[in-house]
């Protein structure tokens, strides 16, 4: 179980996360929603250890969290003049993964022998998603994975996320598409002004949109 205890984050004098407490169980999909600027990406970066924070982020079974996380950032960065296959090969080496899972690499039928510079937004997103899946992670943090992807890829993404869940992985998922969240998630947390304001379970998902309108 992934546990956040009194997690806070400030940029200078500006506090963007206020004593966040949460527990994320294994084998479940946890949705995170909130308005733009609510602190979703900051929270994810803190969990990954890409940002310093106050408080504790721990896992009951894992000591070095970083090496067990597969992270899809909201705006993945790609080196210029790099082919899709080279990007994936880089991640494979960086994560010290032996052998490439061809089924995963071909999952979206991307033109991997072309420069990423020529990819569309959706193609870049799919490539970053494959990159995040490389290596046997226990926790997957997917920051708006459905942005800009076509309908078929959207379905493939959902299938893959459900497969991860079946395999007992912990998935943190943020999205602005409510239907995708309610379809996939076992629970949804509402992040408001840098702290969790409400938690929704499947029976109360109908309240999400109404609450969002009132924020």
């Amino acid at each position: 179980m992934l546990k956040l205890e009194q997690v806070s984050k400030s940029y200078g004098k500006k506090r963007v996360m206020h004593s966040v407490n949460a527990s994320f169980e294994d084998g479940r999909v946890h949705g995170i929603i909130g308005l733009n600027g609510a602190g979703k990406t900051t929270l994810f970066n803190c969990i990954c250890g890409l940002l310093d924070y106050e408080g504790d982020i721990t896992h009951t079974a894992i000591t070095k969290l970083k090496d067990h996380i597969g992270y899809l950032p909201t705006e993945p960065y790609f080196f210029p003049r790099i082919k899709g296959s080279e990007y994936l090969a880089f991640i494979q080496h960086a994560k010290n993964v032996k052998g490439m899972d061809n089924e995963l690499v071909q999952y979206f039928d991307l033109p991997l022998n072309e420069y990423i510079d020529g990819y569309s937004t959706g193609m870049k997103r799919k490539l970053a998603f494959i990159g995040a899946m490389i290596g046997a992670a226990d926790i997957y943090i997917l920051d708006e994975p459905f942005n800009g992807v076509d309908i078929k890829s959207n379905l493939l993404l959902k299938q893959h996320i459900l497969k991860l869940k079946e395999n007992g992985k912990t998935i943190l998922l943020s999205s602005h598409i409510t239907s995708s969240l309610t379809e996939l998630c076992d629970e949804v947390h509402l992040l408001k002004d840098g702290s969790f304001a409400k938690q929704y379970l499947p029976g109360t998902y109908n309240l999400i949109e109404q609450d969002m309108m009132e924020l």
């Binding site: 080196f79 210029p80 003049r81 790099i82 082919k83 296959s85 080279e86 090969a89 880089f90 080496h93 022998n113 072309e114 420069y115 510079d117 020529g118």
Partner: peptide, 22 residues
């Protein structure tokens, strides 16, 4: 048009083949 330029050691030296093309 973005045509792919070959670079040596594509599987390992990531910075190199990025730099090589640059």
């Amino acid at each position: 048009k973005l045509s792919v330029l070959p670079s040596p050691f594509p599987a390992y030296a990531f910075e190199y083949h990025n730099m090589f093309r640059m």
